[in-house]
Design a protein around this nucleic acid. Structure first.
Lengths: 220, 220, 220, 220
DNA sequence: GATGAATGAGAATTCATTCAT
DNA sequence: CATGAATGAATTCTCATTCAT
């Protein structure tokens, strides 16, 4: 029995998502559970974005999802882990990648504006997540980690594209990292600060003109 | 800056302590009290920036300042009001204004890089405040209000300068709002994201090249 | 012991499972169920002894036994009832009785030491149960009831033996209750406190010398 | 300010009992606070003894003491620390020592019974504490530590006395550790088990006869 | 001004127990 | 038999705030 105990007590915390028992096709119950899990995550995303992580109690989250508070802890070990699940699930890295995958061998003058707008739109769709990225960075290391992952990957892909255009002779030889970041950072703050700052230029027009500026320069 | 202080710091102090008998020379006691008040604000700035507002208890703030918790409530009506005092006192609008005041009639090619770097440095000096701007925006309306005030004013002044240079014929006619924001936003995220994103270019060089790009364009 | 088991273990099992159709030969399923029931009890004994009743959750018990929590409630109406089942099943009264049954008409000088050591060993084998006796007495009346039953019965039998030896002229006329309890109590605490107190004398030697002292006295 | 912060933040937890500020004579407020502290401890002793540590909520403790729950945490860092404070404060080691200090050079035949009874009485006065010793040993290491300290010290002193009597020629040469423990352990269980076991002999008489047995032996 | 004792609401988390599958 | 999702009450602990001294 000692061996038995050892095997079962040492790691009594049951991972409920990844079933330990070999690989087994998910039963109806498992599917329901996974559905519920996602529902809880999605609800949490909205509430966290709206009220902020610290200002949201687990009781509220449960109420928003229409379940008992205790159930939250059936699905997530802690409120912190729930936040992690939220940012992991809603990371828009895939969308960003596919957005940037279409670029190859297209002339910059033609696509930069389109890509800028699409990026701006993507951030708009992910407003709740952006909110979390901006506000909950400090206490939860996973939040900046995900955010960093997205930005670094996106900028890297974007830079590759710019390098191609340099090779193709469309752009002059220059530090494409700077260009990529200038465009990306500006669009991010355009979105995040959009509510905050009195922007006089509509975002789409802003992006177009920014691209023009960077392509042709503003010197007389 | 003196006017600023007078309007925002002195007045709330008087309000709670000696009930301002018209205008009266500050006594020794008043000065001591003001000193203590500022000490509490400065300590709070650091602790809030490091731990976040919600994660910081009044007890901790008091301990960090070396006073009893109760004393906090002599100087600030509530923890929220303390945060307001912090962002009000440390708003760097004055510094930003004076930074931009030197620009008039200077050629853009010469000064844009310098101004960009100075702005970047200023943000660096105000790192704690930036932290608060980014993280505590949601629950405390005064935070984004101040932040907005700084950005809008700064961009407006910067834009005025750019318009001058257009008039002077140094820059071509264009939407200077876009240029101002492109530079400002990028530098802000360069600072805020500096730790987060793997930036391959050193900030000073980055700013120089960004200015070059925007002035001359990157098209071949 | 069989009678004991029949009375205490078999019956509650039947009660909850197959609703005892008179007396009926146990089927294979009944046997499996009984096996499982005993496994749950035995696991619970270990875990309760190690962690304490209150500090052990049903979830942990289930995990330790390798079953789902819900199953616990098929076999035991509540966590409290499980504890009762544990102390009932592991009561070592039968062993104690058989240990004391061998004494009759044996000379005290010869057997007291042996009996003392055997009692000490028995307590050692039942360490987990002893733990429960000592720690969970308060909240669960059945615990002290069982413990009392064992002690009272044991001491009574032991006293009978001593009375015999008095009658046989081997021991002087005296209050044998006192003697029986002195030996029994001391051995119990020797065991229970063994870990706690810095005992300078090894238990076996201790028991021998204690018996010598009581038989012959320590007066010069 | 950095030094300031370092000095005050690193150890923000204020020890409230031992004032850090030099040594300063206790003010009226300090005295009130200490009184309150003791009141909370004493209340806790009773309630813990009656209901058991785990079954007692901090809410109940506060109610029993007539204060707000939050105040408990002003005086004790946690419920566990409160228990530690309880056993530390009520350790009866001093009383036990003074009880045993009177023994020197007194003849054993005369004093053993008296000391036995006094020890029994002392345990009776400390019934609540004994309860805690017996029931809360497992989860709170300080409990057995204190209990061990008392027992070891007491037995050691008692043994010294017995050794003296051996040297004085009143007792025969023998392992006095065994004698000391036999008497002590039996009295402890006499007290602790008193309620539990059907003792047929009144405690005082029991102690007298036990001492007689050990001094003179029970052999015919 | 300054202290820290005192309050009570509310937070995260645990847990025995039930029950549909 | 067996599972584990679901419940909701209870628990420990934190914290902003007040106030007598």
């Amino acid at each position: 029995m000692t061996a038995y105990l050892a095997a079962n007590i040492i790691q009594p915390m049951i991972e409920h998502s990844v079933k330990a028992e070999k690989t087994r096709r998910p039963t109806w119950r498992d599917e329901k559970a996974e559905e519920r899990r996602l529902q809880l995550i999605d609800t949490a995303l909205e509430v966290f974005a709206r009220k902020g992580f610290d200002k949201t109690s687990v009781r509220e989250l449960a109420a928003a999802a229409g379940v008992a508070q205790g159930l939250m802890y059936h699905y997530f070990k802690s409120k912190d882990k729930l936040l992690e699940a939220v940012v992991e699930r809603h990371s828009f890295l895939p969308q960003l990648k596919s957005l940037l995958a279409t670029l190859h061998n297209e002339p910059a003058a033609k696509v930069l504006k389109a890509v800028g707008r699409q990026f701006y739109d993507l951030l708009g769709q992910k407003e709740s997540l952006m909110n979390i990225f901006f506000h909950e960075t400090q206490s939860h290391p996973i939040v900046p980690r995900i955010w960093r992952g997205i930005m670094n990957e996106g900028i890297s892909l974007f830079q590759n594209y710019l390098d191609e255009r340099v090779k193709a002779g469309e752009l002059r030889t220059h530090n494409t990292d700077v260009t990529a970041r200038t465009l990306a950072y500006t669009i991010v703050l355009l979105r995040a600060g959009g509510v905050a700052f009195h922007q006089r230029t509509r975002p789409e027009a802003f992006i177009d003109q920014m691209v023009d500026n960077i392509l042709s320069g503003i010197a007389a």
